[in-house]
Write a protein that binds this DNA or RNA. Structure first.
Lengths: 123, 123
DNA sequence: CTTTTTATTAGCAAATAAGCTAAATAGCTT
DNA sequence: AAGCTATTTAGCTTATTTGCTAATAAAAAG
């Protein structure tokens, strides 16, 4: 379960143009691996799933992209898995689900007239 | 429909501790007005819905809260409605719905094996 | 065992954000 | 009109963020 601090980190991670685009890129450009389980990890198309290949698609230096990815990993919106000397990046679906649920409940309970605790951890 | 820029603004707005808490406060502390339509706007309990009363619940100066609220309004996550000389604040449910839908679809289409465009506006 | 590939860390500069106080604006109330 | 009440704007300081290059680390390839 995501607490308030977790949620703030997630929003901060997505609230920056570069990171938003990286995130979008991870979803659209390179996750054949995660979608097709029959495809072994080693067959991942490096072009789209490791730090360098993501960086290639942006006009920023590699360390800049690396730092953004670290922040996104810390926010738990992506996962980074080391295999050989590469790091494979995938969206963190568990977190996406929790965020979707958070907003979904918010709307639902608001509309049914129940006061919903947007973040129900202590303030 | 929210475009990429809109979404980034929304996440940025919620990706700050103070604003997140303000948003939470608007949901939990003061929206009797929005939930009960039979209650006329004029009967809004000021304690929870105008700028000053929100500011009272935080250890920041009024102009600081005012600026945060402006940013949240610009991000379309709240609405600010002037009535007499007060401004009544409510969550923007339309935006919440769109965000919930955005993440919901993301998860759904990811799980069904379809490549989902997290943000389907031009890059 | 040296070189190449892949990625991170360190340290810096520039830009942006977040807070403050003081001043201004705008609409009541008397 | 004078004085409240509610809110925003302006201008400033400090902190954080975002980018860079150079240096480092760790594994793979030759």
């Amino acid at each position: 379960m995501l607490n308030m601090e977790d949620k703030i980190k997630i929003f901060k991670a997505l609230g920056n143009e570069t990171r938003f685009k990286i995130f979008k890129n991870i979803f659209t450009g390179g996750y054949a691996c995660s979608i097709d389980d029959s495809q072994p990890k080693d067959d991942i198309i490096a072009q789209a799933t490791c730090v360098t290949s993501i960086a290639e698609q942006f006009d920023f230096a590699l360390p800049t992209i690396s730092r953004h990815l670290k922040e996104m990993k810390d926010a738990k919106i992506i996962t980074m898995t080391k295999s050989k000397n590469k790091i494979y990046i995938e969206p963190n679906i568990k977190t996406m689900k929790e965020i979707a649920e958070c907003f979904g409940k918010l709307v639902e309970e608001y509309e049914s007239g129940v006061v919903y605790q947007f973040d129900n951890t202590k303030r």
